[in-house]
Every structure is written in structure tokens, then in C-alpha cells.
Design a protein around this nucleic acid. Structure first.
Lengths: 251, 251
DNA sequence: GGACTTTAATTGTCTGACATTAAATTCACA
DNA sequence: TGTGAATTTAATGTCAGACAATTAAAGTCC
């Protein structure tokens, strides 16, 4: 792990990479303390600020945590599920917002992934998961609800459905799909959305989950996908029509 | 974006967070240049090393890239799909290796996610995807293949199946599931694995994909999951038996 | 023996400097 | 006047040394 070729480019990135490899490769284990910054500087034959930049890179990926004081230092961090969720959501959000992904593609991926959880969730959902879903449906039916609150409740509903599968790895993988698509779908469809229709579909899904009918849950999700795609298409069509009218007015 | 409370803790983390929020919130757009390190230091009223630590944190998340020279600086980076893949795989690998996730849970999640792609892939796979799958199957049947090469080929086969869905968002989400589970499953089952059985199942899946039969692809994946789970159970049982024998020997 | 003080180790931050890079500019020369 | 080489300039990359802040452990006093 010591070696650092005389490659003059980006020493801090090289050092970060060397330490990351040691962690991923198991040569540094969870909660193990790294050498102090001064020792690392000596080992790699660089200055302390350079070592610090490398450590900050690792900290940004939640690979290490630092602690001040006499027995402080940098420690290999156990990547917790909440941290992994957060990273997953951030990455997914950026990927979608920066890469001109079509609504259709994103929506298709989202529902395909959620349907993957449907059979498991129908089989294993606890009373608690059902109660959460029912509560969110009830909230969504409130007339005074803001658009933001409705969307947050929508996310919470789907989250409960996904968590119902009782598989934390699956929940982690779905975090991006469920929570990163939300701003995207919300911004596009909230003007045209028929809340009653969505609440009815949610009701259908919750009923199917209660009856432990996986096929029905899957069907409900598919219906929700169709609804969302049609909504988006109508919004896009209306938008195009407006642009077209404006163009004709201008000519 | 300027504000930095007099909170004395972790200035570089606060600055990184402020800039990250500006990027995620769209106030800084792709390829836009950030102020120079000296200007940022002045704005945030900190020293340049502190600013640099903040920028390295963002660079570690591929949120910015830096360029040296007269017109250089830090630029908001377009998060590319390959970068997102890499982060996804790293995060998934660490999450699994550090959190005592059972084989059963990981395997279940992996196949549930892959089944989510099956109907789409059966419908849309190109001749190219089919050719890749066939080629990998052929390679897997070679007698002299090392275990590592067999596993790499296994990953390539599943990757082709997933990419066949023609949905880059789905491919990104599956990167962790397909590529992070590989070392895990490999290390456990490679001793007991019957390659011929796996090749036969792969053949079944490829045939189903060629016939555009989504249900058959799904069934093939489920069969592969059952095979893998049974294999793992037999390995664990054998391991437990060995331990038990050793314990009795010792007493 | 317990509460308090001191000490030492470590990270966090700052200052100032120099090295390196690459684009823009200037200038000599054809 | 046009072109290519040399210079300038602005930025990041790196370094050295220092001090502040924090925290646990060792030491000390009652």
C-alpha cells in the first residue's frame, strides 16, 4: 500500500486510491485506525496537507471517519445503510438531472424495479407496513394538502411497499429509484395530476398487499406506471401545442 | 451559497456541502466554472487549504473536475453513466462486505432486481446482446477456464441480459446488483458449483430471450436463483459439519 | 479512592511560499 | 502582414512550519 510512483499527477488522488484499495481489499478492516496524518505523510513522502486532501476524499465517500483528540485519528468507517441510501439518492438525482434522460426511460426503470419487490412485499409485509401505507393513503386524500406534501406522502407510501419485502439490500437499491425520480416526476405531472385516481390505485395496491396477492400488487404498480406515462405524455403534448401556437403567432 | 455559520466544526465539510447544494439545486450548472480557490477562500472567509479540502471532497464524488493552467479552475462535472456505475459498484461492495448481510438476502435481492429487467430485455434485446450471451455461454463451457474467468464471463452474460432492456437507468441501477454480488457469491459457491448445470440454465435464458419470451427468461432466472441458494446452503452445511467435527474432536 | 489538573497526541486551520501547467499575449522574423 | 516562438499570466498542485482546539490518559492533591 506504500508505493506511489513518481507519477507527478495528483498525489492526493493516488494516496486516496491506495488507501481505498486497502479498505476494499480487506487489508484495512472496519474500525481500524489509520496511521496519523504525520505518519502517512512520512510513509508516502508527501506533506501533511496533501495527505489531508486524500483523507477528505475518502471521508466524502464515507470510507473513513475522523476523530480529534489524543486517541483520535482516521478510522475505517462501517458503511451504514442510511449512508449508502443517501449516496445512492444523490448519485441517482444527479445522473438524471445531468444526462437528459427521458421521462419515459426513468419512469419505466422506476416501476420495473418496484415491481421486483412486489411479490416479496406481498408475502412478507408486516401489519406495520400496511398501517403506514393506509396512513399515507388517508393523508393523500386530504383536500388541503400541498403538492409538496402529497409528493412526500407518495414517496413514503412506495417506501413502505418496498420495505415490506424485508430485504435491506433491496430497499437500498430501490432508494434511488423511488426517491430520486420523485422531483422529476413531480415537476412534470403535478399540474395535470388527478389525485383521486392516484389514491384509488394506491388503495388497490394496499388491498392487494393486505391480501398477500403479489400478482395484484404488480398489476397495481403497472396501472400506476401507465397512468404516470399517459399523464406525462399529455403534459408534453400540451407544452408542444403552446410552443407551436407561440411560433405561429410570431411568424 | 455564501453563508457559513460560525459553527466552528468542519469548515471544509460545510463549504463542500454548500457547493454541493448549489449543484444539486441547479444554481450551478454543468460545465460552469467555480470561482478560483483564492476567491472561494475570500468568499467563505477561510484559508485556501480549507477550500481545497472542500473541493477534494466534491471531486471524490465526481461532482467537479479541476483543470490546471491559466484558464483552469474547478468546473461542475457532468456525472457520466460510467462514473455512476463505478460509484454504485463500490458502494454496494462495501455495504455488503461490511454489514454481515446474509447470502440469502443478497442473492434474493440480486435476482429480484434482475427479473425486473427480464420482460423488457426479452422484448427489446438486439442481435448484439444475444450474440454476447451466446459467446459467454460458449466460453463458460470451455473445460480449461479458471474460476476467475468463469465468474467474469458470468457477469458479462448477466450484464448483456440487463443491457438488453435498452434502458440505461435500469442498467445503472443493476450495476451494483450484478457486479457487487459476484465476489460474494463466487467466494462461497465456486468449490461446489456444477458448471454444466449453470451453462444449461444460461442456455435456457438465452433461448428464451431469443424467442422474446419474457416469462421464460424470468423463470430461467428464478431457476438460477434456486440453484444458487441450494448450492450456498450445501456449502454452509458442509462448513458447519466440519466445525462440528473439529469441536467434538477437541472436547 | 475520587475529583481535579496537567500533559501529550492528534486533527483542524492558517500563512506564505514555490512549482507546475496551459492558455493568452507579445514580439521577432520572414 | 502573417506566423511561430518566447514570454506573461492565472490558475491549480505542493510544501514547510506554525498555532488552535480537542480529547483521552497520566499525574496530583485532598
Amino acid at each position: 500500500m506504500k508505493i506511489d510512483p513518481r507519477n507527478p499527477a495528483d498525489l492526493s488522488a493516488q494516496i486516496a486510491s491506495a488507501i481505498r484499495d486497502a479498505i476494499v481489499g480487506g487489508r484495512l478492516i472496519v474500525d481500524q485506525r489509520l496511521p496519523s496524518e504525520a505518519e502517512l505523510a512520512e510513509q508516502f513522502e508527501v506533506s501533511r496537507p496533501t495527505v489531508r486532501e486524500a483523507l477528505k476524499r475518502l471521508a466524502a465517500q464515507s470510507l473513513i471517519r475522523t476523530q480529534r483528540g489524543a486517541t483520535g485519528g482516521a478510522f475505517v468507517n462501517r458503511l451504514s445503510f442510511p449512508e449508502a441510501y443517501y449516496q445512492q439518492i444523490t448519485t441517482s438525482t444527479l445522473l438524471l438531472s445531468m444526462n437528459a434522460v427521458s421521462f419515459e426511460t426513468a419512469c419505466e426503470a422506476r416501476y420495473a424495479l418496484e415491481r421486483a419487490c412486489a411479490p416479496l412485499s406481498a408475502e412478507r409485509r408486516t401489519a406495520d407496513h400496511l398501517a403506514t401505507m393506509r396512513a399515507e393513503i388517508h393523508r393523500q386524500a386530504q383536500p388541503g394538502l400541498t403538492d409538496e406534501a402529497f409528493c412526500a406522502s407518495d414517496v413514503a407510501f412506495h417506501r413502505a411497499l418496498v420495505d415490506g419485502a424485508g430485504n435491506p439490500v433491496l430497499s437500498y437499491q430501490l432508494a434511488g429509484a423511488v426517491e430520486a425520480m420523485q422531483p422529476l416526476m413531480n415537476m412534470i405531472t403535478f399540474t395535470a395530476r388527478d389525485r383521486a385516481r392516484i389514491v384509488a390505485l394506491h388503495q388497490e395496491i394496499a388491498d392487494a398487499a393486505e391480501a398477500q396477492d403479489g400478482a395484484a400488487v404488480t398489476a397495481g404498480l403497472s396501472a400506476l406506471e401507465v397512468e404516470t406515462q399517459e399523464l406525462a405524455q399529455s403534459v408534453f403534448a400540451a407544452r408542444a401545442a403552446r410552443l407551436d401556437a407561440k411560433a405561429r403567432l410570431g411568424s
